[in-house]
Design a protein around this nucleic acid. Structure first.
Lengths: 101, 101
DNA sequence: TTTACATATGTTTATTTGTTCATATTATAA
DNA sequence: TTATAATATGAACAAATAAACATATGTAAA
């Protein structure tokens, strides 16, 4: 093996990016870009079933891309980290540049 | 629809991150982090079959994460873009921070 | 030409995973 | 407590895909 980086980190990285690699989750992240949202609102905004949204939110939360806060019967989700925004922006830049070439 | 961003960009973004979402491809990108590599060398370094490496390189190239250059019988691949490095670093930072919490 | 080396590409298979449907949990109001 | 609203979760199914294998293409030397 010639690799200097940690093999473990490689898998962690791939796991992280895999989370971003689904349009549904990207859409969910985007509706939370500048405000927290509860599950029902997300489902309404994105025309998705409550179940599907909830499943995806669990994945996003497990990966620390999203955090949650309870308020009465509702649970509000928001981006967990500035890195999430950064990664989204970096990706968007790459997309846009590629389009201009 | 309440979304202001382009729906098209959402799918583009997800497609992009999906490419990063596989350990094999991350490993391939990492061995090209500071130098170009030919297919055989990558296969040797990562203990993968030539076929598998080639398949993945095609995916990486189609997504503009990697570019190639022919030299005799060999073809050298390298990162296409500074964004590729940025995205990898951003992801790594997120991973590392999460580990420290 | 042939031959050998480097890379690319079909095809099949096994695994992963997002969605749906049904049901469970949790919290508030009556 | 009972009813209702919001969210979570388990199971089944269909679609996507990485790896392996065989084979094809391309390049250079003999």
């Amino acid at each position: 093996m010639e690799e200097t980086y940690k093999e473990e980190a490689i898998y962690g990285l791939a796991e992280l990016f895999k989370i971003f690699g689904d349009p549904t989750r990207i859409r969910i992240l985007y509706v939370m870009l500048d405000t927290e949202r509860c599950v029902n609102d997300i489902a309404g905004l994105l025309q998705m079933s409550q179940s599907s949204v909830s499943h995806q939110l669990r994945i996003l939360k497990t990966s620390k891309l999203v955090k949650s806060r309870r308020e009465g019967k509702s649970i509000f989700y928001s981006l967990d980290d500035e890195h999430v925004r950064s990664i989204l922006n970096m990706g968007m830049e790459h997309i846009m540049e590629g389009a201009g070439k």
